[in-house]
């Protein structure tokens, strides 16, 4: 892990919070992460879109929690002691994403980020910002803005 925060030339160094889902490690921009919570009871919302797990009480505020596994086209998994809810803010909207585990914060310079391979299923490809090879690991960087779009929401309403 590169703990070097300095700028190399014009290369911007970004910090990413990494989390694990299934067997892969993903990263989200640290600027979008508000906090990480232990798993708490999620109240399901009848009639909500399938990828919405439900809502939680975050110190008096109601926060929607997204089933990241479902969104990424993964099979559902049991909640374990490692399960975390990452509270993120995207487009002034606070949402939680349920992940299997949260690992660490890594520093990546812009040049290290490669564009994603044009493979994989379409469902998840939309959210991939890029990938990064670091220390023999493949880190998938998630574009949270694309995790939910107005269009998609409109689609869901019209179903």
């Amino acid at each position: 892990m590169a703990s070097n925060n300095s700028k190399i030339g014009n290369d911007t160094v970004l910090q990413w919070v990494t989390f694990r889902l299934d067997k892969e490690v993903y990263g989200v921009n640290v600027m979008q992460v508000q906090e990480v919570l232990r798993y708490t009871d999620i109240a399901p919302v009848p009639g909500a879109p399938a990828y919405v797990l439900g809502i939680i009480n975050l110190r008096g505020n109601v926060v929607t929690v997204i089933d990241t596994r479902q969104r990424f086209g993964l099979v559902p998994a049991e909640i374990t002691d490692n399960s975390r809810i990452i509270i993120i803010e995207v487009n002034h909207q606070v949402v939680g994403i349920l992940v299997d585990a949260v690992a660490e914060v890594v520093y990546l310079s812009q040049s290290e980020i490669e564009s994603p391979p044009n493979l994989g299923n379409e469902e998840s490809a939309k959210f991939i910002h890029g990938v990064c090879h670091k220390n023999d690991r493949l880190l998938i960087l998630v574009e949270l803005d694309k995790l939910m779009t107005e269009d998609e929401w409109a689609e869901i309403i019209n179903l």
Binding site: A43, V45, P46, G47, A48, V52, I55, N57, V62, W153
Partner: peptide, 27 residues
């Protein structure tokens, strides 16, 4: 009354959520 997030706004039959006396969520 706590409004639901944008993703859940317009969910049929649910006008909002609230936090009950024991800290849980009620729709």
């Amino acid at each position: 009354i706590k409004p639901l997030g944008r993703m859940l706004h317009g969910t049929p039959g649910i006008s909002g959520a609230t936090i009950t006396g024991d800290g849980r969520i009620a729709l």
